[in-house]
Design a protein around this nucleic acid. Sequence first.
DNA 1: TTGAAAGCGCTAACAG
DNA 2: CTGTTAGCGCTTTCAA
Lengths: 341, 341
Amino acid sequence: MQVKELTIKDIAKIAGVSTMTVSRVINNERYVKTDTKDRVLQTISEYGYEPNFFAKSLKSKKSKTIGLIIGDIENPYYSRLAKGVIDIAEASDYNIIVCNSNYNAKLSEKYVNMLIKKGVDGVLIATVDVNNELINKLNKRDIPFVLITRKLDIPAINYITADDYLGGRIAAEYLASLGHKKIYFLKAANVWGSNERIRAFADVLKENNIYYDDSYFSDYLENLEQSYSATKKFLSEEKSKSFTAIIGGNDFLAIGAMEAIIESGLNIPEDISLIGYDNLNITAILKVPLTTVKQPKLRFGELATERIIHMIEDRDETRLYPQKLVINPELVIRKSCRKIN
Amino acid sequence: MQVKELTIKDIAKIAGVSTMTVSRVINNERYVKTDTKDRVLQTISEYGYEPNFFAKSLKSKKSKTIGLIIGDIENPYYSRLAKGVIDIAEASDYNIIVCNSNYNAKLSEKYVNMLIKKGVDGVLIATVDVNNELINKLNKRDIPFVLITRKLDIPAINYITADDYLGGRIAAEYLASLGHKKIYFLKAANVWGSNERIRAFADVLKENNIYYDDSYFSDYLENLEQSYSATKKFLSEEKSKSFTAIIGGNDFLAIGAMEAIIESGLNIPEDISLIGYDNLNITAILKVPLTTVKQPKLRFGELATERIIHMIEDRDETRLYPQKLVINPELVIRKSCRKIN
DNA sequence: TTGAAAGCGCTAACAG
DNA sequence: CTGTTAGCGCTTTCAA
């Protein structure tokens, strides 16, 4: 059924040259006479020869493969990011091994070890759960990596992220500018910049002389369902009656809140204004189109991939100039917030 | 900065044995004296030795890597499927290279070739755009593959899919049972079972003596936006006035239709009933929770991965018994359809 | 139970 | 411009 794969030796024999010449032709080196080259090329295509990748890798120590660690491929935040990564990688003939950490540090660790063992040329890290110890491990092995949506204050590190503090300000200032004073904040778990957003929120309130205390914040929430429950509970409490707005630490939390609010018979934005964070593409088709803060997720993936390929292919230069990219988020106004008197 | 990786030779020298003995210990073979084994194990863990994967693969011709070809990782249909694949693969220490065909045959071809070259142990194909020629190529090289959500009538092939004809019937019969007679069908492009769903729809109408002709069908639509436009156009035509229901060939098409219907000032389900196909998780949080036909996407990914790993690790047995799995879709009733008199 | 030799398929280094 | 030799790190084969 299956014929043995041809090797460089076979091609050399058929073309009547040495394996070295075939190797040179394959790698498109100089110093091969044109007609020798043509003859070899001819044999190669005639017999459909393909160099053995394992052998090549064994020599070159390069796998043309990059690992991508994300929290959950089903989360549109990560899937859009992954799309940027995969598409850019493809253009440079790299493949992407996608690792789904499920927001789990143990699993992340296993994945990082797998990637190292497999000899990936680089790693893209977009989760919170890859800890510093693992990052050091990559560093020690001299495997290039880029942090996405996450900072780390080490001199030689490469990352690309959005300014979460600014994003938090944008959301809070927008609400403040609409006249809101009592604003409830749904805190996001598993998000690197979450606390920055919270800090910005608090700062804006202070600057506007708006009172707040701990009761203005939810617990750390992991997903839509938890946010739904937390919001339900919040709305059932007497204190909630005076609140006029809710901020979701990310869009999923805002969506959970939206479901809870509507189910409680309240209207958005008439009774409660709601703002999210991320601008997931589904936010436009919700029951109430969601006003939110945009993160350029596709761009994150693309830029990080361009960067890591650069790092892989020009290690010396890139080592000298680590790239720390911080992108500004933007407000996307839809229909979930209103001005109050 | 970076120390040379240890090889099996180094460990052998340190432990005072031959490389062969180390190799035996690593691969957990019999015929190694317990204390020799312990000594080697001790050195291995002490020095943190890891076998070189490329060298291992060069001999074994196994990469512990599986390729997954999908249409678009950002589409929740595929991302949920991918999640099933990645999670199951991880449990058996396989990695997944995710390939995003963008519904493009040329790109699919490039990806298949890349995967073959990289020496993946198997390929999971979940797109329409991988043509038979490519599939033959995999067959010729004896690379195991499984088709997901797609059939092919070759004896030795493995696939897992849902019964699209049945799914189409389920949607149509539900609408018919609610009393609908004039039903518009939005045809899905890039979906293998699309025509089966259409055929089922037509059959159900015939069986119920409901008249229909070509004007009851849209063109083939690729995405939400196209569906939105097509539905807008449909609703602007005089003929549409008598239609009471719309079927989306998939959920995205239904969502596009939903946006168009609502924007036209019509209500769902009061003026028009709407039904989708796939049961994407976002269908529950739309403006009108969408009644749809469920496809077990996560399960598809999981089952296909279990199968391909089985094929990789037990080629002979699995070759004798190709697995053709057809799963029955189910109706998921939400709030987008109503009974008419 | 252990080891030596040979080789997987490729390429760097050197020689011609 | 082309070929020979040696070796990447591991395992199969055969011998001890």
